[in-house]
Design a protein around this nucleic acid. Sequence first.
DNA 1: CGTCGGCGAGAACGATCGTTCTCGCCGTGC
DNA 2: GCACGGCGAGAACGATCGTTCTCGCCGACG
Lengths: 188, 188
Amino acid sequence: MEQEDPRTRILDAAEELFYGQGVQAVGMDAVRAASGMTMRRVYQHFPSKGDLVEAYLRRRDGRWRASLALYVSRAGGSPREQLLAVFDWLGEWFAEPGFRGCAFVNALGELGAASPGVVAAARHHKTEFNAYLAGLAEAAGAPPATAVHLSLLAEGAITSAAVHGDPTAAADAQEAARLLLDAAVPAR
Amino acid sequence: MEQEDPRTRILDAAEELFYGQGVQAVGMDAVRAASGMTMRRVYQHFPSKGDLVEAYLRRRDGRWRASLALYVSRAGGSPREQLLAVFDWLGEWFAEPGFRGCAFVNALGELGAASPGVVAAARHHKTEFNAYLAGLAEAAGAPPATAVHLSLLAEGAITSAAVHGDPTAAADAQEAARLLLDAAVPAR
DNA sequence: CGTCGGCGAGAACGATCGTTCTCGCCGTGC
DNA sequence: GCACGGCGAGAACGATCGTTCTCGCCGACG
């Protein structure tokens, strides 16, 4: 059941450690040990810790958004129901053991001041998420401003759940989203 | 014009450095240099870096909430207008040079996994902020759920402004807050 | 069979961190 | 006048970090 691809093994270890403990708190040797590799192999695939961090964020962005899109598309229903399903997905994420908020926000707070790559990764992640919400909102007949409002609610829910360790922020945000959608999309 | 209180000088330096660059990225020697003190004096007032970090967060919490409350109280107007003034204040904060998001969220992402004191400080900060909003909401005749919704919007605006470097998140959140208040507080 | 290139394992290196210690100096109390 | 306690300045210490190097081994190829 072991991953045979070294790159994947390293990224798996890095993701678990970086997300769980923060980037600066994790040494390269910890990544090496957790991935069951030798130091030489690690640096062969990622020439520096910065490269590894950016690769970790890039992969996480792709997986995160793919998981969300898959969940929402499977939820089916109207565009409006899909928009609300986003918050169901958030709620499941918040309830996962080891949930520690948004990896991009955390990395940005830690390294943003000194690492343009991390800033770019975080902005890209959030921009793509907002664009995804905007697409759903448009399909639901809501104005672009509503998509912005919903993205703020989602963002706030992530932070709130992380700080208080309480997944119910997702349901609260969903409730607010419902009200905003009711106000923004005139009954047909 | 120099501060004569050593504790204040150290905390001033620590706040600027910790907030601007992240806690782990700032060494004690940088704090010492920026405060114009000797190492002995620094450790005399804060026996460890952890103590300094917690003192930094505690003082920032008090100042942050006092500044908000002062702004809102001066804004006068109805409770509803005061609630909306919270987002004006956020907008001014976001536009300050060096704004880097919520210090507590940043510290939590960096150190939370290993520092119960930081977790407690962040929770306290957010809990007090939510309580403040709840008080305003109650005065405005809005149900408690609305206060939760507004706090999520505010939280989301902070994060969004930090990630994108764009203060308009405050105005967006205010717009959503207005809609939620319209829906929650029946016209009199 | 001999040579060589690449690998695993881990030591080594230089930098930096948090924290403490040394040393020389100066003001104060007997 | 003199011992002494506290201070500034910064060196020192031990730990840890990111990164590189060494060394012994093994398998491929002529």
